[in-house]
Each structure stands twice: as C-alpha cells, then as structure tokens.
Design a protein around this nucleic acid. Structure first.
Length: 259
DNA sequence: ATGGTGGGGTCCCCA
C-alpha cells in the first residue's frame, strides 16, 4: 500500500496537481492538510473517476484536513477525544481527521502553527500536541499512521539556517519534546531513514530554488505498522514552480510504501 | 528588524 501526506495549501487551487500526483505515483491513500474548503466546494469528480473516496473535515478559510482513499474509507472521525478547542471559528475543529483505509488507521493531522513563542496560539499548539499524545496511546496496538504537517523541526538539521529561528516557533525545546513524546510511547518516524531532505520551502525569496527549507512533514507509525514500511520519498517536483500545471503548494508530498 | 509570495475571505489575515 502506498500512503502519502501533503499540505496542499488550498485543494481548490491544487485539485489538478493532486489528481496528477495520485495518478503519477499510484497513490492508495492521500492525507491532505490546509485544504481550505468544504466537500461541496471542491471538484472531486476527477478523484472519484480515479477510484478515490474523499472525506473532508474542513473550514473554508485557513485550514482543514482530508483523506482520499481507494482502498476503503471507513469509520471516519473528525478530531480526537480531548482535542482542545479554540475560540476563533476559523481554527476550530479542522485539524484532524481519521479513517480506516485498507486495514490501517490513518490520521491526517495539521498541527497548529503556533505563530510566535509567547503567543496564545503557541500555548494552544502545545496543548493540542499533548492531547494528541494522550489519544494516540490508545492506538499503539493497532496499525496506525499519524501523518501530516507537524509544524515542528525535530533537529537543527531540519532548518536551512537555525540562527534565523532563534526567536521562532517550530524549533523550541517544548515543541520538540512534544513530538519526541509520541516516539517515546512507541511511534516510529518512518520517513527520515529513506528521505532525509526538506518537505517545505517558503514561497518568497526563492527558497526552493536555493533549497532553503524545513523538514516538518512526517509519518509516525505504530509498532505493528512500522516494520511494514519498505521505503519513502519526498516528491520535490511537486514543489517546483517549473514543473506541473499551475502554481505549487509550499509543501512537497511525502510518500511511504507499506507491505 | 523587516519584507518577501501565495491563498483565502473582504480589503486584511494567515501561512
């Protein structure tokens, strides 16, 4: 089974690229983040014609998550127990969707950005990740994949210039500890051994062209699932403005193969 | 310390 995760930065603006990506790589399950759309807003006929069922847990503005699957899409759940809410309607209830796909429980996750350390959104980010850890403990015994945009750089090597992030989110000890805690519980980050490179490059200052990016998109596999991983890669071509139709997302998709 | 680009919704917020 081939599983992918991709922060698409608007599914409406990117539907053509998403369909081409699924076809080109023979994707079975695609977890998407920042879809910025509800189900009825997106022309999904193309994906349906390719054999995919789609579930969207989304808001029309700044975020929203989705799962497209052609190996079954069952027991769809929006959010997880204990997920902290947020007063702003634009950010509420649209950061996690889970479903059973071909015998694997897949969670498409959009971890809050946090904006700035000391910002209330940063506190919310840490609370959200702590709640995810608590919920994820219950899924350790079954084949589970926690995939998505984690908005955390686990090591200094995951940032093009750590000096520029002295006063930024994504690299603080607290965020790194929250990401590491899931691995201490038994989840295994399965992409890095096969695909150590960046997954995100800012739009401005030609960051992609100069390979000045971040590694923030990951796949955490539960103990029963981790040994089934046979490979992974980052499809940098999908971030390349010179390739494909229309403008790219600022994230590249991450693909994982499972037996 | 700031601004650069792209995507939303209403002319400004968010990544």
């Amino acid at each position: 089974m081939r599983l992918a995760t991709w922060n698409v930065n608007s599914l409406r603006a990117r539907i053509g690229r998403v369909e081409a990506f699924c076809e080109r790589h023979d994707i079975d399950v695609l977890a998407m983040q920042e879809v910025k759309a509800t189900y009825d807003q997106v022309p999904l006929m193309g994906l349906a014609a390719l054999g995919y069922d789609v579930a969207i847990c989304g808001h029309g503005q700044w975020n929203g998550v989705a799962i497209a699957s052609r190996v079954g899409l069952e027991d769809v759940t929006e959010g997880f127990p204990g997920q902290p809410g947020w007063a702003e309607p634009a950010t509420a209830e649209a950061r996690a969707i889970g479903a059973s796909c071909g015998g694997v429980r897949v969670w498409s996750l959009y971890v809050p950005n946090g904006r700035k350390p000391h910002d209330a959104h940063y506190t919310y980010k840490l609370a959200w990740m702590a709640a995810l850890r608590e919920a994820a403990r219950d899924w350790l015994g079954t084949p589970t994949a926690l995939v998505g945009d984690w908005n955390v750089c686990p090591t200094d090597d995951d940032v093009f210039d750590i000096a520029q992030f002295r006063h930024s989110t994504h690299v603080t000890p607290e965020e790194r500890a929250a990401f590491a805690a899931l691995q201490e519980d038994g989840y295994v980050e399965v992409t890095r051994p096969y695909a150590p490179g960046y997954t995100y490059w800012d739009y401005y200052r030609q960051r992609f062209e100069r390979d000045r990016g971040l590694k923030i998109d990951f796949v955490l596999a539960s103990p029963p699932l981790a040994p089934r991983v046979t490979g992974a890669f980052v499809d940098r071509d999908e971030r390349d403005p010179a390739q494909g139709q229309g403008s790219p997302s600022d994230h590249a998709p991450v693909v994982v193969d499972l037996v």
